[in-house]
């Protein structure tokens, strides 16, 4: 390998390693946020919220580094896929860290309210599942394992189920008068945060598959939209549906 390429691969390896470190921080932050929420730990919440600034700063640095690689090295083929995927993954990891932060903020808002054991149990399950998704996402990335990356999607459906169960349990708890409306709404939002973290892990997994195989997730919606195009290649406009002109 000539000197120039060696430099490129060092840069790329270092960028990959930094993404893994950021994702590892998020993986550890998920159960911590769950503990903050369940224990009503205000001090811990502040600590976590402040810690997010570091992740933001490091994500920006890493993004900058990727742009520099693109501009100076002009990578092609799988190397290009690596850098493009990294850029996308940085956004996912950074956003997940924000969501973890949001869980801590919600912990502050529901501070002092007792939750049913059932609600607490499902929260701890959602936290564990979100962490497992993230662990699998990093592992698939580090090991370049497309099969493991593909499995993350299935793991995510369990997290989605938990979120549905949790919303049901919130209704029950609220109906029984054990939590007020404000807490109920906050909790519903918390469930959404966990569910979103899971979705970001799924995105990371999809990017890993893209890097390894060049496969892109089937963009169902986009495909449907294209199929609806008429012979002239004209896309039907949303407004025309209401005219009742037979558009599905």
């Amino acid at each position: 390998m000539d000197e120039l390429r060696k430099g490129f691969h060092n840069d790329l390896d270092e960028a990959r390693a930094e993404l893994v470190r950021l994702a590892a921080s998020v993986t550890e932050a998920i159960p911590r946020a769950t503990a903050v929420l369940l224990d009503g730990d205000l001090e811990g919440a502040d600590y976590m919220i402040q810690g997010d600034d570091e992740i933001d700063a490091r994500s920006l640095d890493l993004e900058e580094r990727c742009y520099r690689i693109l501009a100076l090295q002009a990578p092609v083929a799988s190397d290009l896929r690596q850098v493009v995927a990294l850029l996308k993954m940085i956004a996912d990891v950074e956003r997940s860290a924000d969501l973890v932060c949001n869980i801590c903020k919600a912990a502050r808002r529901i501070y002092g309210h007792d939750l049913d054991p059932k609600l607490r149990g499902i929260i701890s399950r959602m936290g564990e599942q979100a962490q497992q998704l993230y662990t699998a996402a990093i592992e698939s990335f580090v090991e370049n394992d497309a099969a493991k990356a593909a499995a993350i999607d299935d793991m995510d459906s369990y997290l989605d189920d938990l979120q549905k169960q949790f919303v049901q349990a919130i209704f029950e708890s609220h109906a029984a008068g054990r939590i007020d409306l404000q807490v109920a709404v906050q909790l519903a939002v918390v469930a959404r945060f966990y569910e979103r973290i899971g979705d970001h892990a799924v995105n990371v997994g999809e990017r890993v598959r893209f890097v390894i195989t060049g496969w892109l997730p089937e963009h169902h919606g986009a495909q449907r939209y294209r199929l609806r195009a008429d012979d002239t290649g004209e896309m039907p406009r949303i407004g025309t549906v209401q005219d009742g002109d037979g558009t599905p």
Binding site: A24, S25, T27, E28, Y134, T135, I138
Partner: peptide
């Protein structure tokens, strides 16, 4: 193992 190994190395 896992994320712990990454954070310890860091």
């Amino acid at each position: 193992h896992g994320h712990a190994a990454v954070l310890v190395n860091e």
